[in-house]
Amino acid sequence: MEHARRRGLARLMLRWPDRRAQLRSFSPDDPRLGDLFEAYELACEAAGYWQRSDAPFGLERAREYQALADATEEDILLKIS
């Protein structure tokens, strides 16, 4: 869980270089944001998993998770702005 939070925060810093300094000020265990970092990472990982899957609904599910990752990212950026 802690790793997922850390990876989620790192992924956000990569995605948003202009907000990196601001993101760096938050701990992965921040009480307000830690769970959202983890949720973001889970959504990104699930999007990748379903993208590679050969299940008939794999691509549809990958799109769903990508949309969820985008929405979670928006939640986080809104909270820190």
């Binding site: 769970d35 959202l36 949720a39 889970l42 699930a46 769903e64 939640d75 909270k79």
Partner: peptide, 14 residues
């Protein structure tokens, strides 16, 4: 494999 509920629950709590 499909953690939709866990992720959405976090967003809901937030």
């Amino acid at each position: 494999l499909d953690p939709i509920v866990r992720i959405e629950a976090t967003r809901l709590r937030s």
